[in-house]
Computed example of a mutant assay.
Amino acid sequence: MGQAGKALRQVLETYGISQNQVAVKMGIGRSNVYRWVNEVRDPGAEMVLQLRDALQEINPDASAEFVRLYLNKIQ
């Protein structure tokens, strides 16, 4: 568990993006993002895609890094 959460945590820290920014872009509660970042729950495949898209809107470099980290971690 936590592959997406680990990648997300690293990207948020590296790019200075808040959990709230991601939640607002995704139209979800911040508690959902908190659970992913802290590896309490994994986002489903659809949510991973929405995470990528939200990060793309906030910072395209962060989105690319998230995808890279996520794909490298699950191989």
Rank of each mutant, 00 (worst) to 15 (best):
S31M: 03
K25A: 15
N32H: 14
V67P: 06
L12C: 07
A54K: 11
Y34R: 05
R35T: 07
Y70W: 08
F66T: 05
K25Q: 15
Q75R: 01
G16V: 08
L55Q: 11
L12T: 14
M26Y: 01
W36R: 09
G44Y: 00
Y15I: 02
L55P: 06
A64P: 05
F66P: 07
S63Q: 11
A7P: 12
F66I: 02
Q56T: 02
E46V: 09
L12R: 15
N20G: 10
G5Y: 00
Q75L: 10
E39H: 05
L49A: 04
E13T: 12
I17P: 02
R30G: 04
K73V: 15
L55C: 03
N59L: 06
A23K: 15
A7I: 13
G27H: 14
G16F: 08
M1L: 14
Q3D: 03
Q56K: 07
M1C: 11
K25I: 01
G2V: 11
D53C: 07
K73Y: 12
L69K: 04
S31C: 04
L49Y: 03
G5D: 11
M26D: 01
V48N: 14
M1K: 14
N32V: 06
R30K: 12
V11K: 09
A62K: 15
L69S: 02
N59G: 12
L51V: 04
G44P: 02
G2D: 14
F66M: 03
E65C: 01
P43R: 09
G2Y: 10
Q56D: 02
P43S: 04
M26L: 04
I28V: 15
N32Q: 12
L12F: 05
Q56W: 02
D42G: 07
E65V: 00
R52F: 12
E57C: 01
A23N: 12
Y15W: 03
N38G: 05
I58E: 10
V67M: 13
F66D: 06
G5K: 10
K6F: 06
R30S: 06
G29L: 11
G2E: 14
Q3F: 09
M47R: 06
F66V: 03
G29D: 13
W36H: 05
Y15T: 00
P60N: 03
N20A: 13
Q50D: 12
L49E: 03
M47T: 12
N32A: 09
P60Y: 05
V37H: 14
N59Y: 02
A4C: 07
S63N: 10
E46H: 11
I28F: 01
N72S: 04
E65Y: 02
A4Y: 07
E13I: 08
A45M: 11
T14N: 13
Q21E: 08
D61P: 00
L8C: 03
